[in-house]
Design a protein around this nucleic acid. Structure first.
Lengths: 332, 332
DNA sequence: CTGTTAGCGCTTTCAC
DNA sequence: GTGAAAGCGCTAACAG
C-alpha cells in the first residue's frame, strides 16, 4: 500500500507524459490522441486516482461547494428544505457545507463568516427570524430563501397568496368569526401569510382576532387551552405545528374539530396528514424553490422568483356549526 | 473595492515583512516580537483578512472538514442526528459536508467517493439499511453510527437494551399476548431492537407474534387496519412512526389505546409527545453518540462505544384489560 | 497533438 | 527574532 494516494504526477511519470497531458485526458479538454487518452484513463481507474480537490480549488479559485445556512435543523420544515437543496446542488455538481444558525442572528453571522472562509462558491441562506441578508454584502453570490418581502436574489413561496387561499376557503365555508394564529411578529414569512389572510377576510367583512406566538406546537397548545371556543368558528394558523398544538389542546377540552371549530395550518408537514383530523394546510413547492436558489447561486439565473403554493383540503375544515343550524332552521 | 480578497502576501508587503512572519503572527506559532505580532494582527483585522482555505488545505493535507452521510434526510430522526453531529463537529473546528444516500446502497457508495474526493479528513456515516461500511476500507478515518452489531469504530445506542426495557415494561404490566412490529429485516438496528424484546418476552414465557414491514407511518397504519385486535393486548413497535401509524388505524376502528391495547415505539421523535395518547417510547442520547462519532473520526478516541437508552413512560401503555377485569373479579 | 512553465496561497524547514 | 525558499497538486497559457 502506498502511503499517500496517487497524484497526477505519479500517473504522468508512469506513462512518460506530462502532468498537463494527464489533466487534459482526464477532463476531455485540450486535443490529444484518443489512444493516449484511453491509456491515461485506464491507468487512472486502475490506480483509483482521485483528483485532489484542494489543488484544483487553489488553482481555479472555485471549490464546487455551496454553503447552506438554516435557522434550526431541529424544526421540521428545514431538513426537508435542506434535502431539496442538496439534490439541486448535486445535480449541478456542487457539494453542500451546512451551517446551523442556532436560531440567532449572531449564530447566523458566524456561520456566514465560517463558510465564506472555507471557500464556498456561493451561499444559500434561509434567514433566521428577524434577520435580513443583503445579497451584495458578501464576497460570494447569495441566494435567499424567504418571503417576497426580502430584497435581492430570493426564491420564495407566495406566502401571501397561501394566506389568501386559506382565508377564501374559510370564508366560502361561511366562517365569520375567525381566530388567526399569526406566529412571531418578527418573521417575514409569518407576516406575509397573515397579511394574505387578513386581506381576504377584511374584504369579506370578517375581522379576525389575531394572536401572536412562537411557531411551536406548545405555543399552539397553550392558546388552545386558554381560548374561549365560543368566540369563533374557525382558526387559521400560520404554521402546521401551531395548528396541531391548537387542535390537540382543543380536543382535550372536548371541543370537536371540525364540527365545532375548523382549523388550518401552513407547510404541509408530514404530520399534517397523520394527525386526527388530517389538517387542511398549504403546501410549498420546495423542489422548485431549491432549484431556483441554486440557479441563482451558480449564476445560471438572476433575480427573485415567487412560487405558487397549493391549498390542500383535508378533514379539519367544514362549514360552521352555527351556519348549519341557521340554514336548517331557515329551511324548516 | 479590491477585486480579490487580501492574501497573506498583501499583508506582508504592506508591513514590509515576509509571509512567514505574517503566518507566525496570525497563528501564534514561531517566536516574534509581541509588538510586531500585534501590528500584523491589527492590519489583518482591518483588511478583513481571511486565510484561504484551499491554500492551507493543499499545504497541510487536511481540510478541517468531515463528511456526513445519512440514509434519508426526509425521515424524521436523521436531521436531528445531523444537527447533533454538526454541533459536535463545530466544537472541534470542523465543518460538515453532507451527503444523502437516497436510501440506496449505490447512492451511499457514490456519496462516499464524492466526499472523499473532496478532501474530507474523516467520514461519519449512518449506513443505509442493508449496507455495511468497513472502517478500514476508506483512505480516511470512518466512524459508523449504527448498532452494536456493526464492527469497527462505531457509536451506537444500546438498541437491544432498549428492546429489553420495553419488553420488561410491558411484561411487568401483565401483557402476555404481544404483537411485535419489527420493522425491516435488513436493518441491523431493527433486528437489535427486536432481539432485545424477544429475549425478555421469551424469558417471561411470552411468545410474541412478529410482523415485518418498512419503518413508515403508512406501514404501521396498514397493519393496524388489518390486524385482529382481539389477538393481543400490547403492540411493541421498533419505530415511533410505525407505532403512531398503528395507533391511528386502531383508533379509527374504535379500538382504544391504551385501554384495549397498549402501544410502544422507539426513538422519541418530537411527535411521540404530541400524538394522542402520548407514546411510551425509547430515547437515544443523540448528543453523546454524535460526540463519540466525532471523537473517533478526529482520532481523539478509538474503538466502539455503546450508549444507554432511556425508556420514556407516557400514556400509551397500561395494564391489559383482561388482567384488570380478572383482578377486579378476584377482589370482589 | 503534446510538453514546458508558472503560479494559485499557504506552511514549514532552515539559514541569517 | 525574522526572512528566504521550497513545495503541496492542480490547471492555464504558451511553446514546440
Amino acid at each position: 500500500m502506498p502511503g499517500r494516494p496517487p497524484s497526477m504526477l505519479d500517473l504522468a511519470r508512469r506513462l512518460g507524459v506530462s502532468r498537463a497531458t494527464v489533466s487534459n485526458a482526464l477532463r476531455g479538454k485540450g486535443r490529444l490522441s484518443p489512444e493516449l487518452a484511453g491509456r491515461i484513463r485506464a491507468l487512472a481507474a486502475e490506480l483509483h486516482y482521485i483528483p485532489a480537490h484542494a489543488g484544483r480549488a487553489l488553482r481555479t479559485g472555485r471549490s464546487a461547494t455551496i454553503g447552506l445556512i438554516v435557522p434550526d435543523f431541529g424544526q421540521p420544515l428545514f431538513p426537508i428544505f435542506a434535502q431539496a437543496i442538496e439534490r439541486a446542488a448535486k445535480r449541478r455538481g456542487f457539494a453542500v457545507l451546512v451551517g446551523d444558525s442556532l436560531g440567532t442572528a449572531e449564530g447566523q453571522a458566524a456561520e456566514i463568516d465560517n463558510l465564506i472562509g472555507r471557500g464556498i462558491d456561493a451561499l444559500v441562506i434561509i434567514p433566521t427570524r428577524g434577520t435580513t441578508v443583503e445579497a451584495g454584502s458578501q464576497p460570494v453570490p447569495v441566494a435567499v430563501i424567504d418571503s417576497a418581502a426580502t430584497r435581492g436574489n430570493t426564491a420564495s413561496s407566495d406566502h401571501r397568496d397561501g394566506g389568501r387561499q386559506v382565508a377564501h376557503h374559510l370564508a366560502d365555508l361561511g366562517h365569520r368569526d375567525v381566530l388567526l394564529l399569526a406566529g412571531p411578529t418578527d418573521s417575514k414569512v409569518a407576516r406575509e401569510r397573515t397579511a394574505g389572510m387578513v386581506e381576504v377576510f377584511t374584504a369579506a367583512g370578517v375581522a379576525p382576532q389575531v394572536r401572536h406566538s412562537t411557531t411551536s406546537f406548545e405555543a399552539g397548545a397553550e392558546i388552545g387551552a386558554a381560548v374561549d371556543p365560543a368566540g369563533f368558528t374557525a382558526c387559521a394558523a400560520a404554521y402546521d405545528a401551531l395548528a396541531i398544538g391548537f387542535v390537540t389542546a382543543l380536543t382535550a377540552r372536548g371541543v370537536r374539530v371540525p364540527q365545532d371549530i375548523s382549523v388550518t395550518g401552513f407547510d404541509d408537514l408530514v404530520w399534517a396528514r397523520i394527525v386526527s383530523p388530517p389538517l387542511t394546510t398549504v403546501r410549498q413547492d420546495l423542489a422548485a424553490i431549491a432549484d431556483h436558489a441554486l440557479a441563482v447561486a451558480t449564476g445560471e439565473r438572476q433575480g427573485s422568483r415567487l412560487f405558487p403554493v397549493d391549498l390542500v383540503l383535508r378533514a379539519s375544515t367544514a362549514k360552521p356549526r352555527h351556519k348549519n343550524q341557521h340554514l336548517t332552521g331557515g329551511a324548516s
